[in-house]
Amino acid sequence: MYKILLVEDDEIIASSVCEYLKTWGYETEYVRDFEHVMELFLQFSPQLVLMDIALPFFNGYHWCQEIRKISKVPIIFLSSMNDNMNIVMAVNMGGDDFVAKPFDMAVLTAKVQAMLRRSYSFQGETSVCEHRGVILNLNDTTLHYGDKKLDLTKNDFKILQILFQNAQKVVSRDSIMERLWESESFIDDNTLTVNMTRLRRKLEEIGLKDFIVTKKGLGYMLV
Results as ranks from 00 to 15, higher is better:
52 D>H: 13
90 A>S: 12
88 V>I: 13
62 H>I: 03
37 V>L: 03
43 Q>D: 15
31 V>R: 00
82 N>T: 08
82 N>W: 02
37 V>Y: 06
99 V>A: 09
59 N>G: 07
86 N>Y: 11
45 S>W: 03
47 Q>C: 12
76 I>L: 03
38 M>I: 12
87 I>A: 00
40 L>P: 06
31 V>A: 05
90 A>N: 01
38 M>K: 08
46 P>E: 13
33 D>L: 08
87 I>N: 00
72 K>H: 02
89 M>R: 14
31 V>T: 06
67 I>V: 13
92 N>D: 15
96 D>V: 01
49 V>I: 14
34 F>P: 00
61 Y>D: 08
38 M>C: 09
58 F>S: 07
54 A>H: 14
69 K>L: 11
90 A>G: 10
34 F>A: 06
97 D>A: 08
61 Y>F: 14
43 Q>N: 15
41 F>H: 04
90 A>M: 07
97 D>M: 05
60 G>Q: 08
43 Q>S: 12
61 Y>V: 12
93 M>P: 06
40 L>Y: 10
80 S>D: 08
65 Q>T: 11
93 M>E: 15
78 L>F: 06
61 Y>I: 14
79 S>H: 06
59 N>A: 03
70 I>R: 00
62 H>Q: 02
53 I>K: 05
100 A>I: 04
93 M>I: 15
75 I>N: 02
94 G>F: 04
40 L>S: 04
79 S>I: 12
81 M>E: 14
67 I>Y: 07
75 I>H: 01
89 M>S: 15
33 D>T: 01
99 V>K: 08
98 F>S: 01
36 H>C: 04
44 F>P: 02
96 D>R: 02
74 P>I: 04
41 F>C: 07
75 I>A: 01
34 F>K: 05
35 E>W: 11
48 L>P: 03
59 N>T: 05
56 P>G: 01
77 F>Y: 13
53 I>S: 11
77 F>I: 07
84 N>Y: 10
63 W>E: 12
81 M>L: 15
44 F>Q: 09
44 F>V: 10
96 D>T: 01
73 V>D: 01
98 F>K: 09
31 V>E: 00
78 L>N: 05
99 V>N: 02
83 D>R: 09
33 D>Y: 12
45 S>E: 15
63 W>P: 07
64 C>K: 00
33 D>H: 04
67 I>H: 05
65 Q>E: 13
31 V>K: 04
60 G>Y: 02
77 F>N: 05
96 D>C: 11
68 R>M: 04
86 N>M: 09
36 H>V: 12
79 S>K: 09
75 I>T: 00
65 Q>D: 11
97 D>S: 06
61 Y>L: 11
69 K>W: 11
85 M>V: 13
55 L>I: 13
98 F>H: 00
96 D>G: 09
66 E>W: 13
63 W>H: 12
41 F>Y: 14
62 H>T: 02
53 I>P: 07
